[in-house]
Write a protein that binds this DNA or RNA. Structure first.
Lengths: 171, 171
DNA sequence: CTGATTGCAAACACTTTGCAGCAGA
DNA sequence: TCTGCTGCAAAGTGTTTGCAATCAG
C-alpha cells in the first residue's frame, strides 16, 4: 500500500530504468483495467506507461510522437507494443483513431465517446478543434433518415485559417 | 476530325495494345487539358486513359483498383503513372482524395467541387453516400464563427446500417 | 505455472522517387 | 529540338507480425 505496486505492476522487465513514478491516471485506468480483464488480457507495466503518456496528450497526436514521448518520460516500450496498445485503448473506448492523410493516422483521447471535429488549415497546417451540438443533432437526423445507427463520426473541414490566408497570398 | 486523334494523342508508346477506342470523356477532359496547359504539362495518352478509367467509376475507389481497371480495359499504364496522374487530377479539381483508414486512400470524382458525405457501416463495411444542404450551411456557419475559409470538407459517420446491425448481433 | 506479452527485426502494403529512354508540342 | 513523361524497380513510411524469451495473475 505504500509503494505504487498495488496499482502499477512491477516495472522491471528486460530493461531497468523504466518506471512509473506516480499513480498514472485516474478513472481511465480503471476503465482500461476493466476492459483488459474482460478480454482476459493483462495490465502490464508497458500498458500502464503507454496509457500514462497518452493521457498527457492534448488533442490529436501521432503514434510516432507517442513513442518519443515515452522515451522522454524515461519509459521504455517498443514501437510494436505502443501500436498494439493503442489499438487496445481504442477497443476499450479510450482512444479514437483519426485519418487526415495517407501517411499516418492520428489518435485522440475520447474516454467518454464524445467526438470532436476539426478545422484544418491546408496552408499553415493548423488544426482547430471544435464541438457543435447542432452538428450532432444534424448527424442524428441524417442517420435516422437512412436507418443508420450512429456510433461516432468525424467532421473535417479543410480550408484556410486567418493565418494561413496570409501565408497563402501567393496563390 | 474523323479519328479521335485530334482529341486523344496517338496512343503508341512502348507497348502497342493500349488504345482508347472512343472519345473518352466529355467536358471533364477539357478541364484537365486546360489545367495541364496552365501547368505547362502534357496531355499524354496515359493520362487520357487514366482519366477515362476514372470517369467510369462510381463513388469511391482505390488507386490499386484503378490499376486493375486499366488492365481490364486493355489500357496500359504503370502503377507509378497512375499515382502521379491521380495527384494531377486532384490538383485539377477533378478528383478528391478521401481517408478512411491507414491502409490506403480513396478517390472520388468531384469535378465541380461538390463534396459528398458518408455513412460507413463498421460491421458490414457498406458505405452510403449522402449529400446535405443543411450540412453545408452548418459548415459555413461554423467556419464563419472561427474566421475560417472553407474549401472542402469530409463528414464520415461511423455506425451500423440495417444490415450491419443484424450481422453484429453477437456484440 | 501457464498463457499472455514484450522486443526485435523482418515483413507488409501503399505510395513515391531516381533514372534512362521516349515522345508531345 | 527540347522539355516533360513513362516504366521499371528501388526506396520510403507507417504499421503489423513471427518468434523466442519473459512476465502477470
Amino acid at each position: 500500500m505504500t509503494t505504487d505496486s498495488n496499482i502499477i505492476p512491477s516495472l522491471h522487465r528486460r530493461t531497468p530504468p523504466a518506471r512509473l513514478q506516480h499513480t498514472p491516471f485516474e478513472p481511465v485506468c480503471a476503465i482500461f483495467r476493466q476492459y483488459l480483464r474482460g478480454q482476459k488480457q493483462k495490465f502490464t507495466p508497458e500498458r500502464a506507461m503507454i496509457l500514462d503518456a497518452v493521457l498527457r496528450k492534448q488533442g490529436l497526436f501521432e503514434a510516432e510522437i507517442l513513442v518519443d514521448d515515452l522515451k522522454k518520460l524515461g519509459y521504455r516500450a517498443s514501437r510494436a507494443t505502443v501500436y498494439r496498445t493503442l489499438n487496445h485503448l481504442q477497443d476499450a473506448g479510450i482512444l479514437k483513431q483519426v485519418f487526415f492523410d495517407n501517411k499516418q493516422s492520428y489518435f485522440e483521447v475520447i474516454v467518454g465517446g464524445q467526438s470532436n471535429d476539426y478545422l484544418i488549415c491546408i496552408a499553415s497546417g493548423k488544426v482547430i478543434e471544435f464541438s457543435s451540438q447542432r452538428l450532432k443533432k444534424l448527424r442524428d437526423e441524417i442517420c435516422a433518415e437512412h436507418g443508420f445507427e450512429p456510433i461516432g463520426h468525424q467532421f473535417h473541414i479543410y480550408g484556410l485559417c486567418a493565418e494561413g490566408r496570409c501565408k497563402n497570398d501567393k496563390k
